[in-house]
């Protein structure tokens, strides 16, 4: 997703496990992968940490605060959640 995502837009976090494919560095926690959330606010553009971690040329990516209902992940969680996620991890929901 490359176009700027407006607050309120529903998104889904990619269900992907780069951990299984060799050395990597990921800033998307396992527990939100595949989960549906809502764009809370755009946070600006930052260099891709997955490449910075290997000192490779890193493009800038849009970063969003995405809001989730934690109860849908763990019924006992009684809270909602904001996570900073890069556009490369977000799909239309």
């Amino acid at each position: 997703m490359t176009a700027q995502l407006a607050p309120g837009r529903r998104v889904r976090v990619r269900l992907d496990w780069p951990e299984t494919r060799g050395p990597c560095h990921i800033r998307t926690p396992y527990y939100v992968r595949g989960q549906e959330g809502v764009i809370h606010r755009a946070l600006g553009r930052f260099r891709n940490p997955e490449k910075l971690a290997f000192a490779r040329p890193a493009e800038e990516l849009a970063l969003y605060h995405v809001r989730f209902d934690l109860r849908r992940i763990w019924p006992e969680a009684d809270a909602d959640l904001l996570v900073e996620l890069f556009e490369s991890w977000l799909e239309a929901a």
Partner: peptide
Amino acid sequence: VAIRVVDSTADY
């Protein structure tokens, strides 16, 4: 009182 957890994962 609702709780909003903020998982600080990236650049902020």
